[in-house]
Computed example of a mutant assay.
Amino acid sequence: MSRAPFPPFAEDSARHKVRLAEDGWNSRDPASVALAYTPDSRWRNHVEFPKGRAEIEAFLNRKWAGELECRLIKELWAFAGNRIAVRYAYEYCDDSGQWFRAYGNENWEFADDGLMAARHASINEHPIRETDRKFHWPLGRRPDDHPGLSELGL
């Protein structure tokens, strides 16, 4: 199995890889998202450190069970060789109806086959009012004409 685009990344291929990752996460399909990672991929996400696709899929199932109406935007920050750095923000509500916005940075390392071998995430979040939401597209892929993080001032 492989996932284009492949390293080493140029700006266009790095941007494309970031959009593919955003689209995958916005699908909220843990089994499909886990396939973008190497079988032995290593993560750091808050205080969890999943290793391998099975743990990644289980992590995503738990995460998305509690993050309702979640919408995410990722933006390329930097790239070199087989590594990409992104910044991102996502909005979600919990089962009580409280909305949150989370901001973060991720450092990604890819294997030659284009699968992600390592993901190091740094994330913080805070409650927001529903009226302060900025991500309003229907659940699923962000429309191409929806503003990105920079255009939204995030």
Rank of each mutant, 00 (worst) to 15 (best):
E75H: 00
P5R: 00
H120C: 11
P127R: 10
G81C: 11
L60Y: 05
Y90V: 03
P127E: 14
I128D: 08
R133F: 09
W137Y: 03
L68F: 01
Y103E: 12
A31S: 14
D132G: 11
F49H: 14
G66E: 15
I73G: 05
R15H: 12
L149K: 02
G66S: 15
R141E: 15
E57D: 07
S96V: 04
L60D: 13
N61C: 09
A85F: 08
I128P: 04
A89F: 00
A58S: 01
A65G: 15
M1F: 13
D95I: 00
I84F: 07
H46C: 05
K134F: 05
A4Q: 14
F110H: 09
V86K: 04
K17V: 09
A117V: 00
F110S: 10
W77Q: 15
P50K: 02
P138L: 05
H46A: 14
E67I: 01
K74A: 13
E106T: 08
P143V: 07
R129I: 01
F49T: 14
Q98G: 05
G140H: 09
Y103Q: 08
G24L: 14
P50L: 01
L35E: 15
K74F: 13
I73F: 02
D132P: 01
R133H: 07
A4C: 11
L35C: 11
S32H: 09
G114M: 10
E106D: 12
K134W: 07
